[in-house]
Design a protein around this nucleic acid. Structure first.
Lengths: 332, 332
DNA sequence: GTGAAAGCGCTAACAA
DNA sequence: TTGTTAGCGCTTTCAC
């Protein structure tokens, strides 16, 4: 039964026990400054034996440089964001920094409030997704002059550092591919694009490319819910009920497309003979399926890693397009 | 181009600008203490217009009560842990707390070091997974008297609060189910059980139950890698190469089982006629497949939520078994 | 209802 | 190489 206000060991306790001054203990524990080998080991010993855990709150306040990095993601349901976190957390740990996370649930107001409470910890940097934010975010970030990295998108203006890929271009590339393969009656099965702005940019890019080919989307089916395998399966069923003549369907992402693929398997719809399927993300599950999913793969873990690295760097503001890779797969 | 050491606005700046004392500003901003409506609104206005963001580092140091909760998970690759985080992060946000996360990569030494650095932030509580930890973890946690919640497992001794399910019992229930259905030549396809101790407890429970039925595992195929769809597909292929006569395979989790299912689809192996498949976790993807996967579903988001709630509560140490649900599915 | 002042536990000059 | 001391920005008595 732990208690909250429990006077834990302080630096001065260690100093007293080791018979040295506080600053000496501080030097030893932080490994800087010069301390004789003898005192050094004695202090370490005492600290360890007493189970001393330095108070970083005090340390940070005194040194005005926190080792915290805030990360705000819109969701944890889609594996894309855990991937991003994984990359970032790994790098941060190497650099001896701590990740404070927030989940905005694709809500810009909530994102703003999460950012504001993270800012209260005076983080060394803050990592967020996308380029569209509540106006207050911009002013808070500018005012605190915190290093900011915006991830996963390059279609627009960034605040400081931007690293990602063009969702618009990814959508276009998907359309070009389907058209090149001869598909003409193409439908779209998507999830809530009012909230997921990157999915929206993809379908916009997709339609723009179709238009360049003199085509347009034959039908669209949009679920007002987060993306999921279930939503993809149901969405495909509904769109086919309305337009049984579709020859290809573009999905808002791989989860959705996997659901669509399952629908085809269950109903005996030949893929891609009767219907082609195209996703986005390049998830493991889509690639291991009996027919690897045609999709676009993105280097998510890498983006997280680089975002963390840049966040802690002194590099100037910049926009980095890491690109994407079209996977031909076997469903289109 | 943000700079690190930038003298941000302090409480005293607001106090000066509003023409009141520091303590008054503090009272207003924290909404306690009595302040006249007039001063209150004036202070708020000034603070807002100047874009003041309180420094929680200083606040926490002064009040000795951090609003940080540490969470250490072994991985983010398996959606189970993001689910846990999602549940916990939601509850923490409601309670105005911040989540600091660490990813241990199933390494107990790294877990210990993550816990120790999180402890340096004097968190209100710390959430970890499983009941097996480096001995140092126990002593650190005891020494700091931090509230601890261990999640996802109840098979063993806990430190403080424990919330999860019995992996051993889940394994046993899976075996009982397969045996009841008439399967006798049962194999196991698993991932690195030296690191994933909960997967190990499941297969131990599974074998114990088989033994009670007078049976034993016909064959086992273990990949020394994290679980994945790919590993499951490859694992099933290998185990069948050695023992083509298996009539059922138990997988270490649903990702693995999904891979196995894909292998069967690709090779035209009739499921469950020729081979039954059984997983663990009850993931979305397994349930939406043409044949819903036989598996055991666990309330992961709920565990995360409850863990967060309990972590911030004053409840006594306790162990909560939230149980699990066997999903018959159509693959066994 | 409000302000002054004493810390919270550490770091970082500055001395010695 | 080591100790002393003045803050870091806030919260919290304690006066008024």
């Amino acid at each position: 039964m732990p208690r909250k206000d429990f006077p834990s060991l302080r630096l001065s306790d260690i100093a007293a026990a080791a018979g040295v001054g506080e600053s000496t203990v501080s030097r030893v524990l932080r490994g800087n400054g010069s301390v004789s080998e003898e005192t050094r080991s004695r202090v370490r010993e005492v600290a360890a034996s007493l189970g001393y855990v330095p108070n970083r709150i005090a340390g940070t306040l005194a040194s005005a440089g926190s080792r915290v990095v805030g990360i705000v993601v819109p969701s944890l349901t889609n594996i894309v964001f855990p991937d991003l976190l994984r990359g970032a957390a790994g790098r941060l740990e190497e650099a001896n920094h701590q990740a404070v996370i927030g989940v905005s649930d694709y809500d810009t107001a909530r994102e703003a409030s999460l950012i504001s409470s993270i800012l209260a910890w005076r983080p060394a940097a803050i990592l967020i997704t996308g380029l569209e934010h509540d106006p207050s975010v911009l002013s808070m970030l500018k005012a605190t002059r915190t290093r900011v990295v915006e991830m996963l998108d390059v279609d627009g203006e960034g605040i400081d550092i931007v690293i990602g890929y063009s969702n618009h271009a990814a959508g276009s590339a998907s359309a070009d591919h389907l058209v090149r393969r001869g598909y003409r009656r193409i439908g779209y099965v998507g999830h809530d694009i009012n909230r997921d702005l990157r999915a929206r940019k993809r379908i916009e890019g997709f339609e723009a490319a179709l238009a360049r080919h003199g085509l347009s989307l034959a039908e669209r089916e949009i679920t007002l819910a987060p993306s999921s395998v279930q939503a993809g399966r149901d969405g495909l069923e509904r769109i086919l009920a309305r337009r049984p003549d579709l020859d290809a369907v573009y999905f808002s992402n791989d989860d959705m497309a996997t659901g669509g693929y399952f629908h085809c398997l269950a109903r005996g719809i030949a893929v891609p003979g009767r219907l082609a399927l195209f996703g986005f993300n390049g998830l493991d599950v889509g690639q291991i399926a009996p027919q690897p999913l045609a999709t676009i793969s993105t280097p998510r873990v890498h983006i997280g890693e680089e975002a963390a690295r840049l966040a802690l760097s002194e590099e100037p503001a910049q926009k980095i397009d890491v690109g994407f890779t079209l996977i031909e797969g076997a469903t289109a």
